[in-house]
């Protein structure tokens, strides 16, 4: 194939790919993945997206998680900054009534999002950090001008197929009645939340703290929260990221009504004890 022909076919392929994009995606310039100091990782789109499949198809979550953890395992040091990538582990459990589940990196982090705490999405976060790469809505609620990130309920994968044998079943972003139950029946009414979901339930606000030091405005690594009292028990701000799911467990409820445990340490952030490096499990 000569060069002209190659160029023509390449152009057609690109046009076809762009036309296949949903309009909402085409209408905005999607930034490439960034690292924690705001530098492009220069990853090819095709690592995660199937560019020729007629639509944007992501690779499996496990493959993307492997990519994240290939650096975030405690051994990788950035060649420019000399800083070691934060060691993390994903949150999973096989001991709950919801079957064996796992929240992959993409459940909380968006590789395409880099934003500052004030709530304005930007590629130039203040002080090098923002409320970093969180998925969720940045549109401020009409009743709020706080500008903090909102995180939707993370996707939970039923890795053991416990949910009625359906295998790879997920909670959806906007349906809060999808709790897995020991009965094995999806959306079993017996397991559905007793407090019906509301609009504010479906999208919770998130405050992330530096898990290496007590949260103070000056020391926060990931957030400069513009909130009065983030550690007030029962506050809607209280440990928001965890509260996306942990609303009615025996060990923690965001309204501080858990019957079994965690009536201690209620003035501290979850992340003080439950570290990302340990999969959020104490």
């Amino acid at each position: 194939m000569n060069r002209t022909c190659t160029t023509l076919w390449s152009s057609l392929a690109i046009m076809g790919t762009l036309l296949a994009y949903p309009a909402a995606i085409r209408s905005q310039a999607t930034p490439p993945p960034f690292n924690s100091v705001g530098r492009s990782l220069k990853m090819p789109c095709a690592y995660c997206h199937n560019m020729h499949g007629g639509t944007v198809v992501t690779r499996g979550e496990a493959a993307i998680e492997a990519l994240c953890l290939s650096c975030h395992n405690g051994t990788y040091t950035d060649p420019q900054t000399g800083k070691t990538a934060v060691k993390v582990a994903t949150h999973f459990n096989s001991r709950t009534n919801y079957g064996t589940w796992k929240i992959s990196c993409l459940g909380c982090h968006s590789p395409h999002r880099y934003a500052k705490a004030e709530g304005t999405e930007t590629l130039n976060p203040p002080n090098g950090y923002g409320n970093w790469m969180l998925v969720g809505d940045w549109v401020q609620e009409a009743s709020s001008t706080d500008g903090l990130a909102r995180i939707r309920r993370p996707v939970i994968v039923d890795t053991n197929g416990d949910n009625g044998g359906t295998g790879r079943t997920k909670f959806t972003d906007d349906v809060m009645t999808g709790y897995y139950c020991s009965s094995g029946i999806a959306n079993d009414p017996a397991c559905v939340k007793t407090d019906p979901p509301s609009a504010s339930d479906q999208v919770r606000k998130v405050v992330f703290y530096d898990n290496r030091t007590p949260a103070t405005a000056a020391q926060n690594q990931w957030a400069q929260p513009l909130i009065a009292d983030p550690t007030t028990p029962g506050s809607r701000w209280y440990n928001g990221a965890c509260n996306v799911c942990h609303t009615r467990t025996n060990h923690h409820r965001r309204d501080n009504s858990a019957p079994v445990d965690h009536d201690h340490n209620v003035t501290r952030a979850c992340h003080d004890c439950h570290l990302h490096s340990n999969g959020w499990i104490k």
């Binding site: 530098r39 492009s40 990782l41 220069k42 990788y76 950035d78 060649p79 420019q80």
Partner: peptide, 28 residues
């Protein structure tokens, strides 16, 4: 070394082997 992570020793040939992520982003 740019981003070395692991090491092995060849005791027969008295050599050291190092794996390095390099710097494909060109920050160096």
């Amino acid at each position: 070394l740019l981003s070395p992570v692991a090491i092995a020793v060849d005791e027969v040939n008295k050599e050291i082997v190092v794996s390095d992520y390099g710097d494909p982003n060109g920050w160096s």
